[in-house]
Simulated assay, not measured.
Amino acid sequence: MKVVMYSKENCCLCDNAKAVLHELQQEFSFTIEEIDIYKDDALLEKYQIMIPVVEMDGEEVQFGIIQKDVIRKRLTKVFAVE
């Protein structure tokens, strides 16, 4: 499974979100695709003040301050179905 994280450079919230995702990789098997919104005008317009944004299966799961429990809950659901 792939988790997408929309972010930008020099963003402490993005760094924290990335740390949360890396911690959760110890519990769940998934890859992280990090996308810099400043490299795509459409993404910049869509997410400019929302980042970081964590997306799973095409659905925005959480944005801003990423909480480990919220992401863990979603991952638990996803892996229970597989």
Rank of each mutant, 00 (worst) to 15 (best):
M1W: 05
I66W: 00
Q48K: 14
E33G: 02
K2M: 14
V70G: 01
E59I: 15
E23T: 11
T31M: 06
Y47I: 09
S29T: 11
Q26K: 15
T76N: 05
M56I: 14
F30Y: 15
N10V: 11
N10F: 13
F79N: 04
D41M: 10
I65N: 10
K39F: 08
Q48L: 10
D41T: 10
E60L: 06
E27S: 14
C14E: 03
V81D: 07
E82F: 07
R72L: 03
V4I: 15
L43R: 10
P52E: 10
E55N: 11
L13F: 11
Q67N: 13
N10Y: 12
Q62C: 06
C11H: 07
T31H: 12
V3T: 08
M50Q: 11
M56Q: 07
A17P: 02
V53G: 01
K68C: 06
K8Y: 03
S7K: 12
K77V: 07
Q25H: 06
R74V: 15
K2H: 05
Q67S: 09
A19R: 14
D69A: 12
E23F: 02
E23D: 14
I37W: 01
K68W: 04
P52F: 13
A19I: 08
Q62D: 03
D36Y: 08
N16I: 07
E33Q: 14
F63I: 02
F79P: 01
A19D: 13
D69T: 09
I37F: 00
S7V: 08
Q67T: 12
P52V: 14
S29E: 12
S7M: 13
G64I: 11
V53S: 01
V3Q: 02
L75C: 05
I66D: 00
V20N: 02
E60D: 08
E33A: 10
S29I: 11
V70F: 09
D15I: 10
V78C: 02
V54Q: 00
Q62L: 08
D69H: 11
Y47Q: 06
N16W: 00
E34P: 00
D40G: 05
V53R: 03
E33K: 11
V20G: 01
K46M: 13
N16S: 14
K73Q: 13
C14H: 04
D40C: 10
R72W: 02
H22I: 12
C14Q: 04
F28M: 06
I32E: 00
Q62A: 12
K73M: 06
N16F: 04
V78M: 07
E9S: 13
A19W: 05
Q25E: 13
